[in-house]
């Protein structure tokens, strides 16, 4: 089968609509993953065993099971209990929840890496707990986390095609519908691959720059 440039160009506007949904899902999913991950991390650090143990199990369970099945779970089960979500919202919740379990690990490591002396010194100069977090712990803990968090956001971006399985009309689903309609798979499928490479290869270099800027190993 020969590559047909005319057909490839004809598919671009439709694929473009898919790209918009893909970007939407990635942005919303990242916001959710970054916020929820912090909540999970704090719950896991909790002194109360009744909070930290179940959280830890929940995180491990989500990390050990496929995102696709979790998406099905959200998409097919929530309507049964009376919660009607649009496919995109279900997808964003699925992506956000799945990657929150990864970002939680980043937050936890970042916070645990702050030397004990910093906490003790804060106490010694009589800072309150919010002051300690705001002025001492977070300013030191956040920069080393940035490359790792960015890494997971890029990973999430690459996983967005899974949303097509729950009927979200993102890039992959648009490509499939064009392919099925014209019975030509070569161009749309290849263009999807090219699109992801076009974004993720430059992002590797962007990540490396982030690492050089923030990671303690490079200093």
């Amino acid at each position: 089968m020969e590559w047909d440039w005319n057909f490839a160009i004809k598919t671009l506007p439709v694929l473009g609509e898919g790209v918009l949904v893909t970007i939407q899902a990635t942005v919303l999913g990242s916001v959710l993953a970054l916020a929820l991950g912090l909540v999970f991390a704090l719950m896991r650090r909790s002194q109360n065993k009744l909070v930290s143990r179940p959280t830890s199990f929940f995180l491990e369970f989500i990390r050990g099971t496929p995102l696709l099945v979790q998406l099905y779970f959200l998409f097919f089960i929530l309507p049964d209990v009376g919660i009607l979500l649009s496919p995109l919202v279900a997808g964003v919740i699925g992506l956000g929840l799945h990657y929150a379990t990864y970002t939680a690990e980043v937050y936890r490591a970042g916070i645990d890496n702050i030397p004990r002396g910093q906490w003790e010194a804060s106490k010694a100069v009589n800072l309150t707990a919010p002051q300690t977090w705001q002025h001492i712990i977070l300013p030191q803990a956040i920069p080393p986390m940035i490359p790792a968090l960015a890494n997971y956001i890029i990973a999430m971006f690459k996983e967005t095609p899974l949303l097509s399985a729950i009927t979200v009309l993102e890039l992959m689903n648009q490509a499939r519908s064009i392919s099925n309609f014209h019975y030509r798979y070569l161009e749309p499928m290849t263009l999807v691959g090219v699109f992801f490479l076009l974004i993720s290869i430059p992002s590797v270099y962007f990540l490396r720059r982030l690492e050089r800027k923030y990671s303690p190993h490079y200093k």
């Binding site: 095609p161 899974l162 691959g193």
Partner: peptide, 10 residues
């Protein structure tokens, strides 16, 4: 650079 999903379909 691409996910398993995209590679599998390709």
């Amino acid at each position: 650079g691409t996910s398993i999903f995209v590679q599998l379909f390709w």
